[in-house]
């Protein structure tokens, strides 16, 4: 090791952290002793008072919607920072390495394999949309479905070429879509203020009667869920686009 002092500091600190952690872990109350009223209330409320069956989504987008708004903007700012860092000023499409431009052809994948990859794109999009819009009923939601949706254009890149990927995912419009998705979350939260309620209050129609649970029940939950899905999809496609473009940057002569 070039820095012997560094390892000394690390092992001293690690031993101290481990000792304190063990001390605190021993004194923690076990899971049987924790009463967890908050958890019990939310598990009870989400079906009866919010008309959704997935308590996790209800917590994310309603009970603790303000926290998720913060997380959403961390995501937004991280994507923005990555795009700024990887911004291309001298990209020349004609000079890219042909191998990386079309990986499927470069490794000699058969036509059958490439057609199969293309055929899987549709089901991937469908499954992503399904995961997003059923977020408040079954496991899933905007965050998970958004990432699934973002992998669909990648299949096109694998089967066809980067040009197809670029045509499908127009950079300029995706940035607008991402901003709209992130902004819609805040706007829905603000709408409650105009109804005289607190920020992020669930002001939309929850559903008829006591047991009316469907795709559109839950008030603001499915709307925010969809906004998050749009934002995450656009954000991850932009990330993949930036990294792909960076990798395919024109190669210098002789390399």
């Amino acid at each position: 090791m070039r820095h012997p002092g560094r390892m000394g500091i690390f092992f001293t600190g690690a031993a101290a952290v481990a000792a304190l952690y063990a001390l605190s872990a021993i004194r923690l109350p076990g899971p049987e002793d924790v009463r967890g009223e908050y958890m019990r209330i939310i598990n009870g409320e989400c079906v009866t008072f919010r008309h959704v069956t997935d308590a996790v989504t209800a917590v994310n987008f309603d009970f603790r919607g303000f926290d998720t708004l913060g997380e959403e903007f961390i995501l937004f700012v991280s994507v923005m920072g990555t795009l700024v860092l990887l911004r291309q000023t001298d990209a020349k499409p004609g000079a890219w390495a042909p191998d990386a431009l079309s990986p499927g052809r470069a490794v000699g994948a058969s036509d059958a394999l490439r057609v199969w990859i293309l055929a899987m794109t549709g089901p991937t999009v469908l499954f992503g949309i399904y995961t997003v819009i059923h977020g408040q009923l079954t496991p899933g939601g905007g965050f998970q479905g958004g990432v699934i949706l973002a992998t669909a254009p990648l299949l096109l890149y694998l089967a066809e070429s980067f040009d197809v990927f670029r045509r499908i995912t127009s950079h300029r419009y995706l940035e607008i879509v991402e901003a709209v998705g992130a902004g819609a979350y805040g706007v829905i939260g603000l709408l409650a203020l105009f109804r005289g309620r607190e920020f992020m209050a669930n002001i939309f129609h929850l559903g008829k009667g006591g047991n009316d649970i469907n795709l559109f029940s839950g008030g603001t939950i499915p709307v925010i869920n969809a906004a998050v899905g749009i934002e995450v999809t656009a954000g991850f496609v932009l990330l993949l686009y930036a990294f792909l473009q960076e990798m395919l940057e024109r190669k210098e002569a002789g390399s």
Partner: peptide, 29 residues
């Protein structure tokens, strides 16, 4: 049922983690 609040915390954290790592990778590049 198990605690949904903590699961909601983890869920958003995982997605945010990926974008933060992407930012770090861009810095690395």
């Amino acid at each position: 049922a198990v605690d949904p609040v903590i699961q909601a915390l983890m869920l958003t954290d995982i997605v945010v983690e990926a974008t933060v790592v992407a930012l770090l990778l861009a810095l690395t590049v």
